[in-house]
Each structure stands twice: as structure tokens, then as C-alpha cells.
Amino acid sequence: MSRSAKPPTAPPRPDQAFISVRGLTLRFPVYGYDAKSLKKHLARVAVGGRLDQARHGSTTVTAITGLDLELRAGDRLGLIGHNGSGKTTLLRALSGAYEPDEGQIEVRGKIAPLLDLSLGIDPTATGLENIRLRGRIAGLSARQVEEKLDEIAGFTGLGPFLAMPLKTYSAGMQARLAFAVATAVDADVLLMDEWIAVGDADFQKIAHQRLLGLVERAGILVLASHDLDLIRLYCNKVMRMDAGVGSEVVPVKALDELLARPSVR
């Protein structure tokens, strides 16, 4: 039934977020720690022969092969697949960190990668300093950070602790702070590697609300997860990845059918 469900092909309205990935192939050169040494590299030049690259530890891993993906505002895509199937790599490529080897990625809208909450967090700095720094990294101007400071500080519920260095915090408190800052940025495209759940039971509840609000405001969500219930809950579309190959995008109600396939292609 779902096989006929194709992504909308109408051109996106210019004022709306969209993601368009065509024929994306990503290869990682793996520079073995041996090959990273200059001596080996010079030795290779000195020998003068054309040696097989693989023999020197510089092998290439193809992480994503010929992936196509079209998403429009309102799409909430769940990415499923085994470990190493390329989900995180795809998210990083969508964030703009990885350049395609072939094909193209086009994203309109402000991208907020929530892939690693600890990004840009400095344990020796105080809570407030961390909020400012993380906000700047996320693309806020110094003034915008100051405007949002009270709201973020209030949300963490850490009160006077914000003036103390982060290393004095418990793991849960640190997570609260990181979460509050990471989710303070309004974005059109939200990228998440696993649903973020932090803090104690009370905090989890408000964090959940905040994340839902963020997803609601964002045009597009791409969520990679192994938790199928989560995907059923938050996503309206799914794509399965298998060894770097992506399936077509199907509505979430066809999830079971997608899983039942022996492989995606």
C-alpha cells in the first residue's frame, strides 16, 4: 500500500525549508595511524614505485552510496538502520560538515545539528560562559545570546550554580545546561542523533516539552534512532539505511513493511 507513497515532487516554495539530496555518495579515506606519519609518506615517495594505496593503510570506506532524499517543510523523517549503516554520516553531511564525493546536498533554512550535546562545552568555564560560547557557536550573535540568556538560564533551573565552573556540576546538571543551550536556537531544519533525554524525571518532562516545541517550530526534523516507538511517535516518514544505501521514503505507517524487507534494494 505504501509503495505508491512517493515524496512530493512539486517544487518547494521559496520561503519554506527543504532538503534535497541527489545521488549522494560519501567516501571516507581512512588514514591509518601509521600512514599519518610523515616518515611513511616520505618513504613512499622515496621508493618511487606506484604502490597500492591500500597497502599503506590509506583505505577508503564508502559510507553512503547514491542516496536520494527530498524533504519539505512539515516532514519529520525517522532514519533507521543497523549500526554503521550511515545514519550519523548522513546527518553530518546534512549539517554541512562533510562534503559529498558525488551528487549534491541542498538545504534551505537554518540548520541546527543536535548531534552531540557536549559540542563546544568547556568544563572549566562557568555555566554562563558556556551558555554564551555555545550560543555563539550555534550561530547566535553576541546580542542575541544576551537576549536569550535569561530564558536559557531560567530553563536550566540551575540558579546560582550558573556562576560556578561546569566541572563542579553533577553529570545531570551538566546535561541540563548543555540541553538548554543546544535547544535555544530556533531552526528550520533539526538534525538529531537519537532523541535527547536528559536529567531527572521532572526535567525530562519539561525537556520533552521543549524539544517537542522546537520540532513543532522547525520545518523539518531528521531523527536517527534505533527506538521504533520513538519514531512512530515523532515522525511521519521513515527511511531505512542499509550499508550506506537508503530506501525510498515511506510514511511511518508503513514502517513494519519496510522492516520486513530483507534489504533495502
Binding site: 555518495t25 551528487g103 549534491q104 538545504v107
Partner: peptide, 11 residues
């Protein structure tokens, strides 16, 4: 919605 940001990455 005002969307100014645009990213295009190609091979």
C-alpha cells in the same frame, strides 16, 4: 517564515 540561509554542497 523568513528563510535566508541556503546551503548547497556538491561533489
Amino acid at each position: 517564515m523568513d528563510i535566508a540561509e541556503h546551503m548547497l554542497r556538491t561533489g
